[in-house]
C-alpha cells in the first residue's frame, strides 16, 4: 500500500464519513427531542436517493405515491384522535397540514419530473417529496406513544423501519438505481485525483452542519427544540408544544436523510433496503457520542467512514462486520466508565 492509496482511502472515508455525520446529527437530534432512536432514518436516505435516480431519467418517483400513503395515514390518525371536537376550523387545519402539502408536492412532481430540470432542481424536488414524510411518520407512529419508555419507542422505530422498507420494495421494486453526479468535474490535488462529487458531498455536509448550528443557536424554533430536549415537562410548562417539537425534529431528520440520499445516489447503487445499513453507520457514530454530543458524533462518523474505507481495501468481505463491531469496544468503555445504573422504566 503506497501513500496514494492511503490518501485515496482517506478521501473516500471522509466523504462517506460526512454523510454518516449528517445522519448521526439527525439521530442525536431526534433522540434528544423525542427519545426515539430513529432506526428508519436509513429509509429516508433510500427514499431520497431512489427519488433522485428516478427524476434523473424523467420518471415520476414512487415516493410521490408513498407521500400520499403517509399523509393519508397521518390524516386518519389525527382525524380519529380529534373526532370528538370536529369544527370547520379544525377541518381546515387538517386540510392545510395533511392534504394541501402532499397534493402540491405531488402535482409539482407530476409536472416537473418529465422535464429533466438538471441536478440541482431535481435534488431539491427529491428532498421536498421525502421531507414531509418525517412529521407524518411521527404523527402516525410516535406521537401517540410520546410518554412511553425508550424501549417501547425503540420497538416502534424498528417496526416503522420494517414497514418503510417493505413499502419501498412495493413502490420502487427490487432493482438498484444510481443517479447522475451533481458535479462531473474532477481534478488532481498533488498526486491524488479528486472527484467533484466527493468535494460537493463534503461542502454540502459542512454547509448543512453550519446551517443547523445557526438554527439551534439563533432561532426561537431551534431554541424551543433544545428546550424540549433538556426537559419535556419544563418545555411544556413554558408553552412549547412538545408534539410540534417532535414533528419538527422528524421534519429535519427526514430532510437530512433525503439530503444524504441525494448526495450518495450518484456514487453508490441504492437498493430498496440499502438505507438501513447506511443509517446504522450513522448510529454507530451517534452511539460513540453517547446519543447526546453533536461534535463527538460528527467526529466519530468520519472515523467510521475511514475505518470502512480501509476495511473495504483490506478485507472487503468483512467490511460491514468490522464497522459494526466498532460499537462493541465503545459500549465496553462506556460501560466501564458508567458508575450509575438507572433504568428509564
Amino acid at each position: 500500500m503506497d501513500s496514494t492509496i492511503v490518501l485515496f482511502l482517506i478521501q473516500d472515508g471522509i466523504t462517506n464519513g460526512a454523510v454518516y455525520a449528517l445522519l448521526a446529527l439527525a439521530l442525536v437530534l431526534v433522540f434528544a427531542v423525542t427519545r426515539v432512536i430513529l432506526v428508519p432514518q436509513g429509509e429516508f436516505v433510500t427514499y431520497g436517493a431512489l427519488t433522485l435516480a428516478m427524476l434523473d431519467v424523467g420518471k415520476v418517483p414512487g415516493t410521490a405515491g408513498l407521500l400520499i400513503v403517509f399523509a393519508g395515514l397521518a390524516l386518519l390518525v389525527e382525524g380519529w384522535s380529534s373526532r370528538n371536537r370536529m369544527s370547520a376550523q379544525l377541518i381546515g387545519r387538517l386540510g392545510l397540514l395533511y392534504v394541501v402539502p402532499p397534493l402540491v408536492i405531488v402535482l409539482l412532481t407530476l409536472w416537473l419530473a418529465p422535464m429533466k430540470l438538471g441536478p440541482l432542481p431535481q435534488a431539491l424536488l427529491a428532498i421536498a417529496i421525502v421531507a414531509p414524510m418525517g412529521p407524518y411518520l411521527y404523527r402516525i407512529a410516535f406521537q401517540p406513544l410520546a410518554e412511553a419508555s425508550i424501549l417501547v419507542l425503540l420497538i416502534a422505530a424498528v417496526a416503522a423501519h420494517l414497514s418503510m422498507t417493505g413499502l419501498c420494495l412495493l413502490f420502487f421494486g427490487p432493482e438498484g438505481l444510481r443517479a447522475a453526479p451533481l458535479s462531473g468535474a474532477s481534478f488532481t490535488l498533488g498526486p491524488l485525483p479528486v472527484s467533484g462529487q466527493n468535494v460537493a458531498i463534503c461542502i454540502a455536509a459542512i454547509g448543512l452542519m453550519i446551517a443547523l448550528y445557526l438554527f439551534f443557536g439563533r432561532t426561537i424554533l431551534g431554541k424551543a427544540l433544545r428546550a424540549t430536549a433538556v426537559n419535556r415537562l419544563g418545555a411544556r410548562l413554558v408553552g412549547i408544544r412538545t408534539a410540534l417539537s417532535g414533528q419538527i425534529a422528524f421534519l429535519i431528520a427526514a430532510a437530512i436523510g433525503a439530503f444524504s440520499g441525494v448526495l450518495i445516489a450518484p456514487v453508490t447503487t441504492i437498493y430498496y433496503d440499502s438505507g438501513f445499513l447506511i443509517g446504522l453507520k450513522g448510529f454507530v457514530a451517534a452511539i460513540v457520542g453517547g446519543l447526546v454530543s453533536y461534535p463527538l458524533a460528527a467526529a466519530a462518523a468520519v472515523f467510521v467512514g475511514i475505518v470502512e474505507a480501509f476495511a473495504s481495501f483490506w478485507a472487503s468481505a468483512f467490511k460491514e462486520i468490522i464497522v459494526f463491531l466498532i460499537i462493541i469496544p465503545v459500549l465496553l468503555v462506556r460501560s466501564l466508565t458508567t458508575t450509575h445504573v438507572e433504568e428509564d422504566e
Partner: peptide, 10 residues
C-alpha cells in the same frame, strides 16, 4: 451496565 436502550442497539 448501560441504560436499557444500549442492549437492543448493541
Amino acid at each position: 451496565r448501560l441504560s436499557g436502550h444500549y442492549l437492543p442497539l448493541g
